[in-house]
Design a protein around this nucleic acid. Structure first.
Lengths: 192, 192
DNA sequence: GTGTTAGTCTGAACACTGTTCATATTCAGA
DNA sequence: TCTGAATATGAACAGTGTTCAGACTAACAC
């Protein structure tokens, strides 16, 4: 096997390296040429696997969405009990996981939910972060923990709140220590 | 006055042209050279007025924040009455103005609240969008229109909700016709 | 084993980009 | 009118995404 020909796994290797670069530098300061150089490959080699730079970055953004979903899945696995307290813990935990992802992985968050990636086409309907939120709200509703008469379209407001708080964190408009304040205020709003 | 020397107002002219370009193309696809070409000026002329490209874009972002604030100010001016109905109209109107700005000026919104601009340092505390929101909530509270016991830290949740809904609109994750659904759901949450 | 074909990578090139710097022009004040 | 501070130029540098003809490699048919 020749050393100069990087065979078989270039696509995945480029996504991995791009993911690492995005994490440290942010998507704006990542260049195709630099990651090709790290992989000891010609700059034009990427075009056998990706239509253009944005196409590669979209693949990285999909990794970001998967990482977020995994964080949320871990929260659900940590509170599996079928009772009111666990339902509350799952809901708050999902929110905390979402915001922790924004804080820990600022650059990846910005790419995943930025202009390059069309999140609406990446997020599956029957699974993924949005679905986890709706089922958590359904469970709160089933245990009659929600204030009466607010379940309709509540998904959208809660989703928007969490996403907005995350972007405010990312932009530095609010500090990380505001997360608990936010969650408390949110619970005060919707929990009976 | 020589034709070749663009005297006096280059800085403002560049901001104006950059603002126009951002509106149509988005900040990512705007180049210093192109706007210098439109203004019939050397590419390096910009560096007498701006530290670098991001510095110019930050000035454009400030225009975006001002445009948003003006929309919100118009809403307040349209409902000046000192009674419960007007207070409700002001609150809902501010939300609609915020979301309309995100829909109408997608690219400008993305720049204004994007990584390049540090919004926290642009937004004044005693005026601007955030302050208009808090005073609207104070008015709702004064007329006892809020649900009891939720005023504390309500600003942050409402602010995050509006901002999150705006970014979801910009990203195409939700459709513009969801705006009224969002506002209704929001009112259901916080109004008594 | 040999040929053919499809997939992969190279290297040079193109048209850009932001930025710097020495140089030239213009304006405002003494 | 002279001087100094602003302001604009034009050439240059280092870097970018992207294209394309040609070279290399693997795998499959015969």
């Amino acid at each position: 096997m020749s050393r100069t020909y990087h065979h078989g796994a270039l696509a995945e290797a480029m996504v991995d390296q791009a993911l690492a670069s995005v994490r440290t530098q942010g998507a704006d300061h990542v260049s195709l040429r630099s990651i090709a150089q790290v992989l000891e490959v010609s700059p034009s080699a990427a075009y056998n696997h990706f239509a253009d730079k944005d196409d590669l970055l979209r693949a990285v953004g999909a990794c970001g969405l998967a990482a977020l979903d995994e964080r949320m899945a871990r929260v659900l696995a940590a509170h599996p009990a079928d009772n009111p307290d666990a339902a509350r813990a799952r809901f708050s935990g999902l929110g905390r996981a979402y915001l922790a992802f924004a804080i820990d992985e600022t650059h990846l968050f910005q790419l995943t939910f930025g202009p390059i990636c069309a999140v609406k086409e990446m997020a599956p309907e029957d699974t993924g972060p949005y679905n986890k939120l709706t089922t958590a709200l359904d469970e709160l509703d089933r245990w009659q923990l929600l204030k009466p008469g607010i379940r309709q379209d509540l998904d959208m407001v809660v989703w928007a709140s969490a996403h907005g708080m995350a972007t405010l964190l990312v932009e530095g408009a609010v500090q990380p220590d505001s997360v608990e304040v936010f969650i408390d205020s949110m619970n005060r709003l919707i929990l009976g």
